[in-house]
Nucleic acid binder design. Structure first.
Lengths: 160, 160
DNA sequence: ACCTGAACACCGTTCAAGT
DNA sequence: ACCTGAACACCGTTCAAGT
C-alpha cells in the first residue's frame, strides 16, 4: 500500500495497542510498513509530529461517539475508554494536548462549550489520572481508583 | 567522590535542571560522574528506579517547605514550584507517583490527611497540569493558564 | 564490594543518490 | 514526488573480568 501520513498513523496505533509506547520506534514502524526508516520522514516531520497525529486520531474517535452537545461527564468517560484501548494512550495524548490543545480536545469538552477554565482543568485532570492508571497497570500495580472517581471529579470541575 | 545512590540522584537532578529529560541518559549520567555506564547498575536497578529516586527527592524538598499540617493549597503551589525548577520535573514525578504513590506524595497532601479521593484527585491534577505546562514551555508555546487556576481547582477538589 | 571493558541489540534523524 | 542506503551520534542493560 502507498505510504501516507494516514497509513503511518494507523500502523503506529496498531503497534501502540499491541506492544505499547516502548516498542513504538520510527525504525520499528518502518519495519512494520516494509519501508526504510528514512522513508517516514518524507510524510512526517519527526516523532513529535507523529504523536500529534496519533492524539488527533484518538480524539476523532471520541468525537464520533460524543458530539459537541454531549454530556461532558459522558465525554470524559468515553475519552478514558479510548485512551485505555491504546496502551500508553494517555501519555501520548498528554504530549499531543501540550502541543496542539485545540486539535486534541473532544468537541464536548472544548473551550467554546465549557469555557477555558473548565475545559483545560478537566483535560489536565483526565490526562493526568489516566496516565497514572495506565502506568500502574503496565507495572502490574492494582488501580487505586478507576473511573468512578473520574466522573465525580469531572462533575466538580464543571463548576470552576 | 564515592559513587552512591545519593550522588547519582544529585547529579541526575543537576542534568535535569540544566538540560532536561532528553539529555538524562544513563550514559550521560555516567560520563558526568566519571564512571563507566555499567557502574551505575551496581547502585540502581534500572532507569525506572532512578526516576523514583528523583521523584522521592523532589518530594522531600516540598515536605521541607510544607509539613503535614500545612494548607493543602499552599502545598500544591509549593509542589508546582519545585517541579518547575527541574525541567520535566512533573513528567518524572508522574512516573514516580505511578510506581510508588506513598513515597512521592507530599505529607500535606497524603491520604491520611486528605482522604484517598482528595489526595489522589489532587495529585493527578497537579501532575497532569504541570506536565502540560512544562511541555508547552519546552516547545516555546505560551502557557494557557498557569498557577492561579491550579489553586482554584485544588480548592474545589478538596471537597471531593 | 565496587568498578571496568566489551559486547548486544537497539534508537532518531539526515542526506546523497536513485527511480 | 517518493523512497533507498549508508552514515552519524547516540541509547539501556548485561556480564565476565579485574581490584
Amino acid at each position: 500500500m502507498a505510504l501516507t501520513a494516514e497509513s503511518i498513523t494507523t500502523t503506529a496505533l496498531d503497534i501502540l495497542s499491541r506492544y505499547g509506547l516502548g516498542d513504538l520506534s520510527m525504525r520499528r514502524l518502518a519495519r512494520e510498513l516494509e519501508v526504510q526508516p528514512s522513508a517516514l520522514y518524507w510524510h512526517v516531520k519527526d516523532k513529535q509530529e507523529l504523536f500529534v497525529l496519533l492524539a488527533t486520531r484518538m480524539n476523532a474517535v471520541v468525537d464520533a461517539r460524543c458530539p459537541s452537545t454531549s454530556d461532558p461527564v459522558a465525554a470524559v468517560m468515553a475519552l478514558r475508554e479510548i485512551l485505555l484501548t491504546y496502551r500508553d494512550g494517555a501519555e501520548i495524548m498528554l504530549l499531543g494536548y501540550s502541543i496542539a490543545p485545540e486539535r486534541v480536545t473532544p468537541a464536548a469538552l472544548s473551550v467554546s462549550v465549557l469555557g477555558a477554565s473548565a475545559s483545560h482543568g478537566i483535560m489536565a485532570h483526565v490526562l493526568g489520572a489516566v496516565t497514572i492508571e495506565q502506568n500502574r497497570s503496565a507495572f502490574g500495580i492494582a488501580a487505586v481508583g478507576p473511573g468512578e472517581r473520574l466522573a465525580e471529579i469531572t462533575a466538580k470541575l464543571l463548576e470552576v
